[in-house]
Structure formats: structure tokens, C-alpha cells
Simulated assay, not measured.
Amino acid sequence: MTTRTLTTIGFDADDTLWQNEQYYRLTEAHFTELLADFADGPRISERLLEAEKRNLRHYGFGIKGFTLSMIETAIEITEGKVPASVIAGILDTGRDLLSHPVETLPHVQETLAALSESYLLVMITKGDLFDQERKLAQSGLGDFFHAVEIVSDKTAVTYRRIFSKVGGGPERAMMVGNSLKSDIVPAIAAGSYGVFVPHELTWVVEHVEEPKDAPRFRKIEHLGELRGLIEGID
């Protein structure tokens, strides 16, 4: 392994290894139905996104923060008159999200199985600790990973710390994910390769421009293309 260009490959989890955003979208649609008597759907969604952005620094990423933002939005939309039944409905949708079955994305199982034979794999994900641990356990992918890092945010400092601890440092590491903002741009800033795997649904907060001029930026259509890309580097 020491003769390779790469020693370590990091993987994002939500919408890289398994479906995630589509369940948030379905929950948001149900949320707008709960408040249909007070405002139209687009207005409710707009206010919810504002609340989510505002609350990230308080609650972080994940379902619990999303649920609290829905409750806050309901209070604002109804000017403090939100019925208890609506609050109960919001809490129910949050619990449903926390118990939703895990659906792995195409090519994940075989790609991780093959790469784990030659590289140190580490899952690097944001979100609620218990929820991410649950999803990893239910996915059946845990045995492929040398380490799992559930972090509050993803920055260049985060990647330098993790890849210095796991493997040969950030220069000999690669980060794979669907979020340019969280997975790709900061990993490249840390000195690693960043492999962008677009997902049809990515939270708007995670959108930034592709760093196309960065020498270590790569883009693939799906994880089934990752092994071939790595062979070209190594």
C-alpha cells in the first residue's frame, strides 16, 4: 500500500452511499399539507429553508434540527396559532424519518468491497450521531470501513485531521461525495483529491460552483466509475 499514490479513500454517506434527500423532500411535502390552511406550499417551503439556514449554527445538520425548524416555521406561518394537532403531525414525520429503511445507491456494495482490499476506507459524514450510526448498521456496509467519522461540519481542517490520522495524510487521500460544498471543495483545499458524484437531489445549501480548474478535482456519473478513475491515478 505504501507504494501507491493513494492510501485512503473517504466517502460521504447521505446521497453518496444511500438515499437521503428524497425522504426530506417527501417530509417537506407532508409538512406543507399540514399548514395548507395558513399559506401556500411555495411560501411554506421558503420559510422552512430560511429557518433551516438560520438554525444550522444552533442545531447542526440532521433530522432533529430539521424537525425543530419545521416547528419554528409552523409557529411563524400561523403567527403563534399553530394547532397542537399540527405540532403532533410534525413530530410524527420527524420520527418517521428517523426510522426510515436504508436504501443503498447503485454500485455501492461492489465498489466498497473491491476498494477495501487495497485502500483504507473511511466514512466521513455530517448529521445526527444516532441516526448516522443507525443507517450505517442497517446498510450492511460497516465492515468495509477502517474508520467512521461523524462530524458537525466538513472543512479543510476536518479533512486534514482525519486523513492525517487515517492513512498517509491528505495528499495521499481522496474524498468522494455528492456535495461540492462539503465533500469536494474543502477536501481539495486540504490537499486531497475530490471526486464529485452528482445526485439528482442535493440540498440547495450544499450548492457551489465546480472547482474545474483544480488539478485534483474529478467528476464521475456514478460510483461504478470510481475504480477505473482510481486506477488512472494510482
Score class of each variant (00 low, 15 high):
T2G: 05
T2I: 08
L6S: 02
I9T: 06
E21V: 13
A29T: 10
R43A: 01
I44S: 03
E46T: 10
L48I: 01
K53L: 15
K53T: 05
N55G: 13
Y59F: 12
G62R: 00
K64N: 02
K64A: 10
F66I: 02
S69G: 03
S69T: 03
M70Y: 09
T73K: 01
A74S: 11
I75R: 15
T78P: 04
G80N: 05
K81V: 09
A84F: 06
G94R: 04
H107R: 04
Q109Y: 13
L112R: 07
L115R: 00
E117W: 03
E117R: 14
Y119M: 11
Y119D: 04
L121I: 13
V122L: 01
M123A: 13
K126V: 12
Q132M: 12
Q132R: 03
E133A: 14
R134P: 12
K135I: 05
G140Q: 08
G142L: 09
A147I: 03
R160F: 12
F163S: 04
K165P: 05
K165F: 06
V166W: 07
V166Y: 06
G168I: 00
E171L: 10
R172T: 09
V176W: 14
N178Q: 10
G191P: 05
E200C: 02
V204E: 15
V205E: 15
D213R: 12
F217D: 00
K219S: 05
E221N: 14
H222A: 11
L223M: 11
